[in-house]
Nucleic acid binder design. Structure first.
Length: 815
RNA sequence: GCGAGGGUGGCGGAGAUGGCAGACGCGCUGGACUUAGGAUCCAGUGGGGAAACCCAUGAGGGUUCAAAUCCCUCCCCUCGCACCA
């Protein structure tokens, strides 16, 4: 017997699989397709356990589906643009491109060493001009469709590094690199109108199976609220102040208005208010505070009375206008009507500044209207103190007041979303150049499609300081205007890398395509992705942007489907000592070390066995050893099978039953939410039984061998290398990849005797062996003759007997 | 505060439709084979008890012949969202 030596054996099979083009995907209308996709890795130095988990899960699904007759697309690529490449450039003095491609080499080798069944010839590398030219192409199409625009927008700015920072690079209001306080700086930036698609993005009906929490997170992110805009006339500035509210029914309870410190009216009010100086000071204090978002939540509500008045649209009362720090400029109109009686925030503010509180909705639980409220009443009720609307149910009142306002031209129905347009500008080098040209004569124009790609220049100085490094590359900037042909300048912003990942899965589906982003037929065949697998950290941005992209592409007529990912599985993190593996925690386990020691199959098996895919997985070296032992056991048993000589055949039927039961269990566990951990447990159970029976030599060689072959087949998707080795060692010459997943149809329980639980008054007292055909009274007879149970029943009246077939019998007796 | 998901041995985790709680693995205990074993094999392993038995699924109630599973009250943990008008 050879010793199980995974390292040689795994490399051998990986080579043979590759030479035989096993995993090459070909599109074919005869076969039902299955597109299995894992989120592609970012090209940092090497892969970590999180990747191993993600890709192993995908590989099991892919191999399992192939064996079940599907035509599989299982591709991989690299998310290759992004800031870390520039940081590496600064730190290690290496060009971002060289750094990235070097990493890709490493990662590719690591993925191959794991034995994942990828179709390598469809690899996508997003920093390849042949890929990102299509980002530019889409940008131009979006521009034509009026889906991109440029506007001033605040960006995080580090005054020391002289650079723009991404949100995640701002830590507690400070620059992650130098620790300087981060300021906001207004810059002209490019936006994509994702808000145009807010309604369609809220519709998840085209999605089959996504985790509920991901859908909820996206819904919250889009944050739709339906309400009413109301216009309050301000005589002093001869203009309307618009507020947004979802509670128009409380309009008669308005006792003041509040503006955000950033509201454009603040300037006007400052000019005419008698409290100009105080207001100025207040605004300065509120807008200068470089607090992080979390701190802002903790700070107390503060405000200042402008001493300016607005006119109530119905009562014509004079309503004081305040400026308050609790009103967000980014939401609604940046101004609210305050109804302290029915909104807790307004209530707190009113209490603090001693503003009037007017009750206009009667809580049904109130016997009479209270003199004073302890807190705002935000629930439903009957309207009071509301003139002609008195007595209405508040929900009805909301509608009535809105209609009335519309009639007198003082308001209108309005829908607001939290979702903001997608800022895709990055003042960075390592990204897709935005294909825009600035011409003195023609203005802002898009580059001609035939001039794409606009390639990133290799020669560039990356310092991490100042604006986009491209600003200093003259060769890049200088160009001809695509409209008039005169000298012009290029845009130097590059695109957010989420653009790259919004459609990469379409490119996979289009093999060897050169003259367009993808082939429509092939994409329509493979798409949508049948199973997408990745981390929960992409629950919102990547998945939302991809959904958006696909909808736009559909509207452009480029594709025929509405949703990119039908089924989504978010796998849990790999944790050690209770926390996520990370460099800073110093608890990282390198997959390469584990593979060297135990081989890829052991690593795969452990990662699948230790927990169900969607929950966090606690790393355990001992657990790895357990899996290593299991595979060694399989290995040894294999040689026992080969040398086996039967003594008797009494267990033939039994073994057939057990292998069929195992196949059924494993199949169902995979089909049902990918419960690989229990599937593996069932295979371990099989091995426990199998090794017992092989020691007894109580089955015929034929049945033994037959069961063993079936077992190797179901083992294959989990640990493909060892399975393939054993398979071939049995004299089989077809690859397991091309074998059919075994069926379990024709099996029934051979053993007619089973054991059922015996309960007296619901309490378990033991078990009896019965024949499956027994009727209740036969079982009852058996029990009343049994020494163990006799004493409970003798002399007692049996009130009732409940028999759950083949499981349990409960005898209810009088006490 | 709101929303979602959880709390089961020493540990990771199993437990369709309510029906023998703790599959499988780890760890631990004992034994076999061994010069030795951290290799392998066999047996045991929720707690209490000598035993008969009794007690156990976050806590407490309830429904039921029967509850980890269903209902109510509460506690704790994790993850989202968070002054969104």
């Amino acid at each position: 017997m050879e010793k199980y030596n995974p390292n040689n054996l795994e490399k051998k099979w990986q080579k043979i699989w590759e030479e035989n083009d096993l995993f090459k995907a070909e599109y074919s209308y005869e076969k039902k397709k299955f597109y299995i996709l894992e989120m592609f890795p970012y090209t940092s130095a090497q892969i970590h356990m999180g990747h191993v988990r993600n890709y192993t899960i995908g590989d099991v699904v892919a191999r399992y589906k192939v064996m079940n007759g599907y035509n599989i697309l299982h591709p991989i690529g690299y998310d290759a643009f992004g800031l870390p490449a520039e940081n590496a450039a600064i730190k290690q003095n290496i060009h971002p491109k060289d750094w990235t491609y070097k990493n890709i080499e490493t990662i590719r080798e690591q993925l191959k060493r794991l034995g994942i069944s990828y179709c390598w010839e469809r690899e996508v590398i997003t920093c390849d001009p042949e890929y990102y030219r299509w980002n530019q192409f889409f940008f131009i199409q979006f521009f034509k469709r009026n889906l991109v625009y440029k506007k001033m927008a605040p960006a995080n700015w580090c005054p020391f590094c002289q650079t723009v920072l991404a949100n995640e690079q701002v830590i507690d209001g400070k620059c992650w690199r130098c620790g300087e306080n981060v300021e906001t700086k207004n810059l002209e930036q490019w936006f994509v109108k994702i808000t145009d698609y807010a309604e369609r993005l809220l519709d998840f009906s085209g999605i089959r199976n996504w985790p509920e929490r991901v859908i909820t997170m996206q819904k919250n992110w889009i944050g739709k609220s339906e309400g009413c805009e109301i216009y309050f006339y301000i005589p002093d500035i001869e203009g309307n102040l618009n507020v947004f509210t979802t509670r128009a029914d409380t309009l008669f309870g308005v006792t003041y208005l509040v503006l955000s410190p950033y509201h454009p009216f603040v300037e006007k009010i400052k000019r005419i208010s008698s409290r100009k100086n105080e207001i100025e000071k207040f605004i300065e204090r509120m807008t200068k505070s470089s607090l992080s978002v979390k701190d802002i939540l903790k700070i107390e509500k503060e405000g200042i009375n402008t001493e300016i008045f607005a006119i109530h649209p119905i009562t014509q009362e004079r309503i004081p206008v305040w400026i308050g720090n609790y009103v967000l400029m980014e939401y609604g109109t940046g101004a609210v009507m305050a109804v302290p009686a029915h909104d807790q925030r307004d209530f707190e503010f009113a209490k603090k500044y001693d503003l009037p509180i007017k009750i206009v909705i009667k809580n049904p639980e109130w016997k009479e209207i209270p003199e004073k409220l302890e807190k705002a009443y935000e629930g439903p009720g009957i309207m009071i103190n509301s003139d002609i609307f008195d007595g209405l149910d508040n929900e009805k009142g909301e509608e009535e007041i809105r209609k009335y306002l519309e009639k007198i031209n003082k308001g209108k129905k309005a829908i607001y979303y939290k979702l903001k347009d997608w800022c895709i500008s990055r003042q960075r080098y390592w990204g897709t150049p935005i294909p825009i040209v600035y011409c003195q004569k023609c203005g802002v124009v898009t580059e001609k499609e035939e001039n794409l790609p606009i390639e990133l220049p290799y020669e560039v100085k990356i310092t991490g300081r100042g604006e986009s490094p491209l600003k200093y590359v003259e060769k890049f900037i200088k160009c001809k205007c695509p409209v008039c042909g005169n000298d012009a300048e290029r845009e130097t912003d590059t695109m957010d890398t989420f653009v790259d990942s919004s459609w990469y899965f379409l490119r996979y589906a289009s093999k060897d395509i050169k003259d367009k982003p993808f082939d429509k037929n092939e994409v329509n065949y493979w798409m949508p992705v049948d199973q997408y697998i990745g981390g929960i950290e992409h629950a919102i941005l990547h998945l939302l942007y991809s959904r958006f992209f696909i909808k736009v592409l559909k509207d452009m007529g480029l594709i025929d489907f509405e949703e990119p990912f039908e089924n989504l599985l978010c796998q849990g993190m790999v944790i050690k000592d209770g926390v996520k593996m990370s460099k800073s925690k110093g608890n990282v386990v390198d997959p390469e070390d584990i593979i060297k020691k135990y081989g890829a199959d052991t690593l795969r098996l452990f990662i699948l066995f230790a927990a169900p895919p969607e929950v966090d997985l606690e790393w355990s070296e001992k657990g790895i050893e357990g899996c290593w032992r299991f595979l060694n056991r399989v290995w040894r048993l294999h040689y026992e099978v080969k040398n086996y000589e039967s003594i008797e055949t009494k267990n033939d039927e039994n073994l057939e039953f057990i292998i069929n039961k195992t196949i059924k269990g494993v199949t169902e566990d995979i089909e049902k939410e990918f419960q690989f951990n229990t599937a593996i447990a069932k295979m371990m159970e099989f091995i426990n039984f199998f090794s017992k029976i092989i020691n007894e030599k109580s089955v015929s060689k034929k049945v033994l061998l037959d069961s063993w072959k079936k077992f190797i087949k179901i083992l294959y998707p989990f640990v493909p290398h060892i399975s393939e080795e054993l398979w071939k060692d049995l004299g089989e010459n077809k690859f397991l990849f091309y074998e059919k997943w075994p069926s379990y149809e024709k099996f029934e329980k051979i053993d007619k005797k089973i054991s059922i639980g015996v309960q007296i008054n619901g309490k378990l007292k033991g078990a009896v062996e019965i024949s499956q055909t027994f009727e209740v009274n036969e079982i009852l007879n058996l029990i009343s003759e049994n020494e163990k149970f006799k004493k409970f029943i003798i002399g007692k009246k049996i009130l009732k007997t409940i028999y759950v077939k083949n499981r349990v019998i409960n005898i209810v007796i009088e006490d």
